[in-house]
């Protein structure tokens, strides 16, 4: 994963000890055994597996979502369409596909902050964010995002005024959610491309905020 340098919950996550990223070698072995069996029986084409991995490593990732957000920041009519029919507005930019056929976009404002979780598994909007980070799938994030969202946000370094309403979207059904973060102050006159560079993966899950202009661009939360 390219988000290994992410400064927070992956490392401080309370679930790290029992469900963090150290995949048991037994599990890895079981996957390998299953793969060779499926390939031997002709049920899986190894070239298709490679194509699948290539697609989510290089073509589909949070830069797609960042394009959507930057467009919404620049184009009020697009923002309206995005909030009214997320699937159609996202498809306008060419981002469609599995785990993103039915999209709802929720907008952060001065009075409302949205964050997304799937308490039952790891549902995540693949076409705009790619595959979910490890912490998103971890039991502690899934349990605590709904029980103590402010505490979780604090661990991600996000402190919001007490009077901001927190809305947690538990995407356990068929709809996938994308958070439209607030455009950072001091970005007037920036181009859509420049704005897209400020949009982090975490800000579109709702556990982070976009980077301030001039802040160092790192790979944290932005890699595919």
């Amino acid at each position: 994963m390219s988000d290994h340098d992410h400064p927070h919950p992956e490392h401080s996550d309370p679930g790290h000890s029992d469900s963090g990223h150290d995949i048991p070698s037994e599990l890895a072995l079981r996957v390998k055994a299953l793969e060779s069996l499926l390939v031997e029986k002709g049920l899986v084409d190894p070239a298709a597996l490679d194509a699948l991995i290539d697609m989510y490593e290089h073509k589909v990732g949070p830069r797609n979502g960042a394009r959507v957000v930057a467009r919404a920041w620049c184009d009020p009519a697009y923002r309206q369409r995005l909030l009214a029919d997320g699937s159609a507005a996202i498809a306008e930019l060419g981002f469609t596909g599995r785990q993103g056929a039915d999209m709802v976009v929720v907008e952060n404002t001065d009075t409302v902050h949205n964050m997304v979780v799937c308490t039952l598994c790891s549902c995540y909007p693949w076409p705009v964010l790619g595959l979910p980070p490890v912490w998103y799938k971890s039991a502690p994030y899934r349990a605590r995002a709904v029980r103590d969202p402010r505490g979780v946000l604090r661990e991600f370094g996000v402190e919001l005024p007490e009077d901001v309403e927190i809305r947690v979207w538990d995407s356990t059904a068929e709809v996938r959610y994308l958070v439209l973060p607030q455009r950072p102050p001091g970005t007037e006159g920036m181009s859509e491309d420049e704005l897209a560079d400020l949009v982090t993966r975490d800000s579109m899950i709702g556990v982070g905020l976009p980077r301030a202009p001039g802040a160092k661009s790192t790979s944290a939360g932005t890699g595919p």
Partner: peptide
């Protein structure tokens, strides 16, 4: 069986 050449179209089609 899903073929490599069909992967992108299949994934983009949605589910």
């Amino acid at each position: 069986v899903l073929k490599a050449v069909d992967v992108e179209a299949t994934l983009r089609k949605g589910d």
